[in-house]
Amino acid sequence: MQPSAHSGLAVAATPAQLAVVDAALARLRDLPGALLPIFHAIQDELGFVPTDSLPRIAEALNLSRAEVHGVLTFYHDFRTSPPAPTVVKLCRAEACQAVGCRSLEAHLHQAHGAAMGSTTHCGALTLEPVYCLGNCALGPSALVDGKLVARLTTQRLDAIVAAAKQKAAAPGGRS
């Protein structure tokens, strides 16, 4: 097990963020096995799960804070700090290795400063590892803000970084 990619300093949740948490709890707390659906709902909205929301999640589900923390940090998907405006999940698995994903990972690190689990120097794009996107005949593949892209090259990655910079610079780019 490895710690979550975004286990940096926890960011204090704003009242608006806690309202998102409360809304998710109100909507989903009665589902059987509600904890994962609740984490997903919060992260879908905020981009991460604020750690200072864990006590209220624990209370709502009648779980200990340790259990809630344990579940949150077990799963690679969940972040505890906000990502950059653009998130790229680059596949690191064998089928993509066979068509050169290792050199793409190296390129993002060397040319843009984003090692796996970190953000580019420009702050516009967070790079996360993913192990298979089920697009193994058309690799190397990535999810760019949830959209599947295929046959990646270093040139196409550069274009994705450039688009991320534009998005970050646009008004409202940083939520």
Binding site: A93, A95, C96, C132, G134
Partner: peptide, 11 residues
């Protein structure tokens, strides 16, 4: 939870 690399039949 089709996690094996190289598989996509479930998807």
């Amino acid at each position: 939870d089709e996690g094996d690399s190289g598989t996509f039949s479930d998807r």
